[in-house]
Amino acid sequence: MITIKNLHATIEGKKILKGLNLEVNAGEIHAIMGPNGAGKSTLASVLAGREDYEITEGSVDFDGVDLLEMDTEERAREGLFLAFQYPIEIPGVSNINFLRTAINETREHKGQDPISAKDFMAMVREKSKLVELDPKLASRSVNEGFSGGEKKRNEIFQMAMLDPKLSILDETDSGLDIDALRVVAGGVNTLKSEKNATIVITHYQRLLDYIVPDFVHVLHDGKIVKTGPKELALDLEEKGYDWIKEEN
């Protein structure tokens, strides 16, 4: 699905990613953990195509295409989805109508006809139910006046609407109470299939009780420094990151 090799990225001359390697296959869930400032969100932004970062070395293959050569919107249309750590508010822009545009531009990219109004509305109903997002919120301005938890649910709602191949969830669990966490995780699990893959970035093991990863990676100082089974998350939660920092 995605193969990241020796990825180096800088922002404003500051080196953030320093030779990162990661391979994710279809049907897998990978968790990335790591201390604040390690570069987790940077990795997510770089994969999504944020232009503020400069890629100085390395390659990213996304299902046979060179991801780094594509614009942000092309990556999205090819099936890459980023659930933002801090989803922004866009006053005046209707959530579902911009999604309709996004879906139709993606369908056009794939040579498909636009979705009918009826099918679209049915999909909105189904997917908003999946993450228990009030349909009224779904049709309001993007994230405007949403609570922290509602913003996160809206990210997963959008993910459900866009049906991506690879989803990167950047701290989607932070700020969620336990009930909301269950709902969001339930949504992610329902969407999981043999054809797609998920990368969850998190600080907390508790999310991984609900979204069970195949691998846990530790990102430290711009590199993946340790990879293990899901039990690694328990160790990290108990012992923190210092022992890993010392190993490196």
Partner: peptide, 11 residues
Amino acid sequence: AIFYLRARGLS
């Protein structure tokens, strides 16, 4: 906001 919308597939 532009990046957010593009990350969803808008040109």
